[in-house]
Amino acid sequence: MSSSHSKVQIQGIGYDPTVGPRSTGPTQAPLPATPTMRGGQLSSPSTPITSSTPAIFSTRSNSLKSSGSNAIGGLTSIYDRNLHRAKHEISLSSLSFLFMEMISINLNTSKSVVELERKLNNLGYTIGLKYLELASLRVNFNNNLTSSGKSNTAKRDIKILEILQFVVSTIWTSLFGKPADNLEKSSEFNNQFMIIDNAPLLTRYISMPKEYENLNCEAFIAGLIEGVLDSSYFKCEVSAHGVPIDNFPTRTVFLIKFDESVMKREARLAGK
């Protein structure tokens, strides 16, 4: 397979914002012979699965009616799967290798440790902005399964301690399958809080060499927390610091510094 050919292929896979959710979903039409068609196609005609079975993919509208009916050949789009699955688990190995490559790529393109940390932080930030929505949807759904049929609208936390509790319990559990180990308030500064994780998942296999001692790869998660807090109107800066203790060599402290405006709002809310 030539490299130019595979480039054309890639365009057919993945999310195409000009087409919308359909672009990664199953397709309706039989596939044309040329691989030049963009979007809308599950994969290129050159792959054996699609070329031999052109008509078996049900349409998008079908898939909305019955889930599972279009799992032909093991191909289901993520849009056909329920948002509220009981388990949301992925392979830790795959995640570790992916995260390793994210660091490697950014390491090669960064001039300094500070720049690398900022880049990882930015990557996490964009995820955090969106992740808040999904996490709060899921937690409300699960809570309301047990209670009487309340609506699935999320409760929005407006106080600092409440939102931090939400991050420590809900966000942490949905990301890592366990709550964070500790939440502390800085004794020196009123606007600083610390979330402590004794054994962070992403850096479980990463040992820092001497020349990168100041770097903590959990900057990615720090960015994610910052994204979550920012999109819930708690402007802040989050940084990750490695603070190893006995038995926990990768223990990490996430330092959260809230903005002045948040502290003013908090004081106003408390005064009420």
């Binding site: 995260f99 040992s207 060499p209």
Partner: peptide, 23 residues
């Protein structure tokens, strides 16, 4: 496999210096 190959700071076929692996 876990503590050396999943470490972004390790280059293949180079001497292994990973604290977690040692531990």
């Amino acid at each position: 496999c876990d503590y050396v190959l999943k470490n972004p700071f390790y280059n293949l076929d180079m001497p292994i210096r990973a604290r977690l692996f040692d531990d």
